[in-house]
């Protein structure tokens, strides 16, 4: 969402602490870093959002790529259990590590295919079960 160009080294390299009830953590706009990063990593599950990020040239920004790499802590415990959209979030987070995908997602066709596949898979999976 941030429209400011990011500077290298602006991202913290240590994952935020999982919520523990302690309220002395610094807050940003009233939210902890944990909350903000959880929301962002899950927003990456939306193909249209990825396309939007690509169109704003974020996906070729080295700082942003480093940030995407850093966000991989969500694939591991104890953070993974906080994802409420686990499927698309983890899939897109993995895809975003590949340079080819970061270049290709600017294509509306690919965005469209990903959306169609996602919408289809979610109903098909539960139909078969």
């Amino acid at each position: 969402m941030a429209s400011e160009p990011m500077s290298v080294g602006s991202s913290a390299m240590e994952p935020p602490l999982a919520p523990s009830g302690a309220s002395d953590e610094p807050k940003y706009a009233g939210f902890t870093r944990f909350e903000l990063e959880l929301e962002f990593v899950q927003a990456l599950g939306n193909p249209a959002y990825l396309n939007h990020l690509a169109s704003r040239k974020f996906l070729s920004n080295p700082s942003f790529i480093a940030y995407i790499d850093y966000l991989q802590y969500w694939t591991r415990p104890p953070y993974i259990k906080y994802l409420t959209y686990p499927g698309p979030t983890l899939k897109n987070l993995r895809l975003l590590q590949q340079e080819k995908f970061r270049q290709d997602i600017i294509s509306p066709q690919l965005t469209h295919v990903m959306m169609t596949e996602g919408l289809r898979a979610v109903v098909e999976y539960h139909r078969e079960n």
Binding site: M1, A2, Y28, L36, E39, Q42, A48, Y85, P88
Partner: peptide
């Protein structure tokens, strides 16, 4: 099966932005 646009626009990051 993913956060919709209005959720992203109404979320914590939006108020940050």
């Amino acid at each position: 099966p993913w956060p919709e646009e209005h959720m992203i626009r109404g979320g914590a990051l939006a108020s940050f932005s």
